[in-house]
């Protein structure tokens, strides 16, 4: 029986584990689920706090999870957990700031690209349509065009792209992100005009 359980925990997908937790209320299921993403949660927390505080935050988020998962109908656990993590960190940051009265810069945090959550699983991928989007690619600014081309079509890593173009590593990242978004917009416009 224990072995069976173990198997379920290891192989079941997120939704099944969520169901099982909601049905039984057993923390084992939730813990197994949480463990899959704990390193990501921890990584996100590291953006806001130091290592020790991040570990505490990870445990606190688990406590929140125990309660909130029972209350909410969650479709995509991973995305939901990401939002939960961010929200927790921001709330925590605010309460810390209130207490200490000092300013913590939120400038460095990228604005959430919410659309990626929505489009995340509908299969409408940028790459699948890259062939159709060669035209769109031409409309991009030079840096974005080169970065996107190298990254998506030549399948180079960020490091390679940075080496080949001479751009800064962080710039490369944002070129690719923005290029991808611009391409998507361009693509959707094309679709609209075709339809």
């Amino acid at each position: 029986m224990a072995f069976l359980h173990h198997n379920i925990m290891k192989d079941a997908d997120d939704a099944a584990l969520m169901q099982e937790y909601k049905r039984s209320g057993k923390l084992d299921y939730l813990a197994a689920l949480y463990q899959r993403y704990m390193n990501l949660v921890y990584g996100v927390c590291l953006r806001f706090f130091d290592e020790e505080a991040s570990k505490d935050a990870v445990m606190q988020i688990f406590e929140e999870l125990i309660v909130k998962l029972k209350q909410h109908e969650v479709q995509n656990f991973k995305s939901w957990l990401h939002v939960l993590t961010r929200n927790y960190c921001l709330m925590r940051l605010r309460s810390l700031k209130n207490r200490e009265g000092r300013e913590i810069s939120l400038d460095g945090l990228p604005v959430m690209e919410n659309d990626s959550f929505v489009h995340h699983e509908n299969g409408m991928s940028v790459e699948a349509h890259l062939q159709d989007m060669e035209k769109c690619l031409e409309t991009l600014p030079e840096e974005q065009k080169r970065s996107v081309d190298l990254f998506y079509l030549k399948e180079k890593s960020y490091r390679e792209v940075a080496d080949m173009t001479g751009y800064d590593m962080n710039k490369v990242k944002s070129y690719i992100q923005n290029g991808k978004r611009n391409l998507k917009i361009c693509m959707e416009q094309q679709h609209a005009s075709q339809a």
């Binding site: 993403y37 390193n39 990501l40 949660v41 921890y42 990584g43 996100v44 927390c45 590291l46 953006r47 806001f48 991040s54 991973k78 995305s79 957990l81 990401h82 993590t85 961010r86 959430m112 690209e113 990626s116 959550f117 995340h120 991928s125 690719i176 992100q177 991808k180």
Partner: peptide
């Protein structure tokens, strides 16, 4: 790039 969760964790 497709997974903002992963992207943010990597950043952190």
């Amino acid at each position: 790039l497709d997974d903002p969760f992963l992207a943010e964790a990597l950043d952190g």
